[in-house]
């Protein structure tokens, strides 16, 4: 066993050390590319008071939404509430603190958090509620607001394929926030559909190097589709 081998034997081991009131950054967009089994493990553990950073909060029944049921999330940082009734209800009633964050700003906050950049200027949100209370600076005649980066005690993410060293390959639009989420986690836990031996992945095809990954586990995925849209065969 190499010191670079990131594979863990169980979901319990994968999420060991997660405690109440920690911050968890999660990859996924809607229900696409979500770390569904790692989320289920957090539900099983019953960890509460969590701050969760993710584009969406799943739906009422799937994804991060299942952590709302027993009120395990104290604060949600997300760009879209959308079709999740429970999320909207807990937000409106004030039970759940929500920091609505523009999608591109959220991605960049994670990217910067993982890249050692404490804050960045963006035009996104200037002159809107998102910009309130934030530093404004003018560059070349345009206004920008200062946004701080995000880091998590844990990152949970899903990739398609990995080697045992945690080198990752994502698949289609299931990539979304996953690479940035992983880089921004102090402990980055990734679940994948397939783990291959070291050397089997072409170094040129690796989307995210294993240096960012701490724990790796192979899971079985339900892959629920939110909006099943089709065209006629002809």
């Amino acid at each position: 066993m190499s010191g670079f081998d990131k594979v863990v034997g169980s979901y319990e081991e994968a999420m060991a050390g997660l405690e109440d009131n920690m911050t968890v950054i999660a990859g996924g967009f809607g229900l696409c590319g979500i770390p569904e089994n790692l989320i289920k493990e957090i539900k099983r553990k019953g960890t509460t008071g969590l701050t969760v950073v993710s584009n969406n909060c799943g739906t009422d029944r799937y994804g991060l939404g299942i952590l709302l049921v027993d009120k395990q999330i104290r604060k949600m940082v997300a760009s879209y509430v959308g079709e999740n009734k429970l999320f909207e209800e807990q937000m409106m009633s004030g039970e759940l603190e929500v920091e609505l964050t523009p999608q591109g700003t959220l991605a960049e906050k994670m990217r910067a958090g993982g890249a050692g950049i404490p804050a960045f200027y963006t035009a996104t949100g200037y002159g809107t509620p998102v910009g309130e209370g934030k530093e404004v600076r003018e560059f070349n005649g345009r206004h920008y607001i200062l946004e701080e980066s995000i880091q998590g005690d844990f990152a949970i993410a899903k990739a398609w394929k990995a080697d045992r060293y945690g080198n990752l390959v994502f698949r289609k639009t299931a990539r979304n926030f996953n690479p940035m989420a992983i880089t921004a986690g102090k402990i980055a836990v990734v679940e994948v559909e397939e783990i291959v031996e070291v050397g089997e992945l072409d170094p040129d095809e690796i989307h995210l190097p294993g240096i960012y990954v701490d724990r790796l586990i192979k899971g079985n995925f339900e892959k629920v589709i939110e909006q099943r849209t089709v065209r006629n065969n002809k």
């Binding site: 696409c32 909006q227 849209t229």
Partner: peptide, 22 residues
């Protein structure tokens, strides 16, 4: 365009979370 039944892929959606093709 949207996929045919056979082409549906849970890993390939648009920003509205609808299944799409490339």
């Amino acid at each position: 365009p949207f996929p045919t039944e056979d082409e549906i892929d849970a890993d390939l959606i648009n920003a509205g979370k609808q299944t799409v093709t490339m």
